[in-house]
C-alpha cells in the first residue's frame, strides 16, 4: 500500500476531511470511503461518463482523477443537486420525460447535463448532443435524455436555476 494523505474539501456543500491513499482515484474515495454510491463505476477508464462529478463547477470523470487532487476543492455529486425545495430542474425533467430506464448512466448524465446548462443556459439540441458524447447509455437511445435536457433549457428560460 502507498502512503496516505489527509485532505479536506467541500463535498455537496459540507466540509469534509479524510485520509486517502495517494494512488486512490476520486471515484473509489466517493463510493467506497465516503459511501456516496450515487456516482457509478462503469468502465473505470474515462469512456462512459457514469462517474461524472463537478469539481470547482467543472465536469470531470472521477474515475480518472486522483483522490488527493480533491484537496482544497469543491465537489458536487448527484447527491448534492437537490435543494431543500426539491429536485433540480434537470432531475425533474429526466423523470417527466422518461429519460431513465435502468438508471445506471443517469447520475452521470444528470451531472453532465447540469454542467452544460450552467455553462450555457441557451443550449441547442446540437450542443446537447455534442455535450453528452462522453456519456454512454445502453437503454434509452439518448432521445429522451436529449428531450429532458432541452426541456430544462425551457424551464431555465422561464426563470428556474440549473
Amino acid at each position: 500500500m502507498s502512503i496516505t494523505k489527509a485532505i479536506s474539501f467541500t463535498l455537496n456543500g459540507q466540509a469534509t476531511r479524510i485520509e486517502v491513499p495517494v494512488d486512490m482515484d476520486a471515484l473509489t474515495m466517493i463510493r467506497d470511503v465516503l459511501k456516496l454510491t450515487g456516482t457509478k463505476l462503469g468502465c473505470g477508464e474515462g469512456e462512459c461518463g457514469a462517474c461524472t462529478i463537478l469539481v470547482d463547477g467543472t465536469a470531470v470523470n472521477s474515475c480518472l482523477m486522483f483522490a488527493v487532487d480533491c484537496d482544497g476543492r469543491e465537489l458536487t455529486t448527484i447527491e448534492g443537486l437537490a435543494t431543500p425545495a426539491g429536485r433540480s430542474v434537470l432531475q425533474r425533467a429526466f423523470v417527466e420525460h422518461g429519460a431513465v430506464q435502468c438508471g445506471f448512466c443517469t447520475p452521470g448524465l444528470v451531472m453532465q447535463g447540469t454542467y452544460l446548462l450552467r455553462q450555457n443556459p441557451g443550449l441547442t439540441v446540437a450542443d446537447i448532443r455534442r455535450g453528452i458524447e462522453g456519456n454512454l447509455c445502453r437503454c434509452t437511445g439518448y432521445q429522451k435524455v436529449i428531450e429532458a435536457i432541452a426541456a430544462a433549457v425551457h424551464e431555465i428560460e422561464k426563470g428556474d436555476r440549473a
Partner: peptide, 26 residues
C-alpha cells in the same frame, strides 16, 4: 501528475508503475 487522464488508466492496467515519489503539478 497533471490531469491524470493518461496516468490513471496506465497505472490501473499495470502498463506502468508509479515511482516512489508522486509530484502533483496542479
Amino acid at each position: 501528475l497533471a490531469g491524470g487522464t493518461d496516468l490513471m488508466p496506465q497505472i490501473r492496467s499495470g502498463k506502468r508503475a508509479l515511482a516512489p515519489s508522486l509530484v502533483n503539478l496542479r
